[in-house]
């Protein structure tokens, strides 16, 4: 284990602790939804970090196809895996949040649907990697799929959005909406930072393990 990785892990742990303190200690109880709204500090950062992860997959895939650097392939693999984990957390917490507020675990509203399609696409990505034995070929194919998948996300988003929508528009980035209580935003930002650190830690560790795996089985 490298010292940088260890430091990242401690930072992530610290950040998550701070995030919990912010979410439960500092941020006030939301007026209309009550304390159940505190799920947001988990739900929203998870999907933002997942988008970041899949963006990294796209960039790493392009770099791999360009210069065939094995490091870029490992980064894409690790990032996709962590992104899928975070997407799963987003979907699960969303369902748990939806039950008390909407009265149902699941509705086919636009953002739920598009995020779950994204989840399935990247599960397929990991499946493709797992099913090809030749490492170099797996890297090439996964890179192509990583590019198609990432470019598909906006298409999925728009198509599903036009198809049907119930979801409240994103509270944070809605222009002209009344500003949220700064403590809410601060708590959200702290949690986002913590999740990014966690993403960095997981990805760095996974990349190193993938490299070791290649060395051992070489």
């Amino acid at each position: 284990m490298t010292s940088r990785e260890r430091a990242l892990g401690w930072l992530a742990g610290l950040g998550l602790t701070a995030g919990l303190v912010m979410a439960f200690g500092v941020a006030p109880r939301e007026a209309t939804q009550g304390n159940v709204q505190r799920i947001m500090y988990l739900h929203v950062p998870a999907i933002l970090v997942a988008y970041l992860a899949f963006g990294v997959v796209l960039v790493a895939s392009v770099i791999y196809l360009w210069g065939r650097a094995a490091g870029a392939d490992r980064l894409a693999h690790a990032s996709a895996e962590v992104g899928v984990v975070f997407t799963g957390i987003n979907i699960a917490t969303g369902a748990i949040w939806g039950k008390p507020t909407w009265g149902t675990w699941w509705t086919w509203d636009a953002r739920l649907t598009s995020v779950s399609i994204m989840f399935v696409i990247y599960l397929g990505y990991l499946l493709l990697r797992a099913m090809i034995e030749d490492r170099e070929r797996a890297a090439r194919f996964a890179a192509v799929l990583g590019i198609v998948a990432a470019l598909d996300i906006p298409l999925v988003h728009f198509s599903v959005y036009w198809w049907r929508t119930l979801h409240q528009p994103p509270t944070l980035l809605r222009p002209g909406s009344p500003p949220m209580d700064p403590t809410f935003v601060l708590a959200l930002m702290v949690n986002l930072a913590a999740f990014m650190l966690l993403y960095g830690y997981f990805t760095a560790k996974r990349v190193r393990l993938l490299r070791q795996e290649e060395e051992v089985f070489a």
């Binding site: 939804q33 799920i39 988990l42 984990v85 957390i89 699960a92 748990i96 997981f202």
Partner: peptide, 24 residues
């Protein structure tokens, strides 16, 4: 609106479980 602490607990517990599971 009721607080639904059990749902909050479930959400955070589940997330901890998933992240901890991946870490392990």
């Amino acid at each position: 609106m009721p607080d639904n602490w059990s749902f909050v607990l479930a959400a955070y517990g589940l997330a901890a479980l998933v992240l901890g599971g991946y870490w392990r």
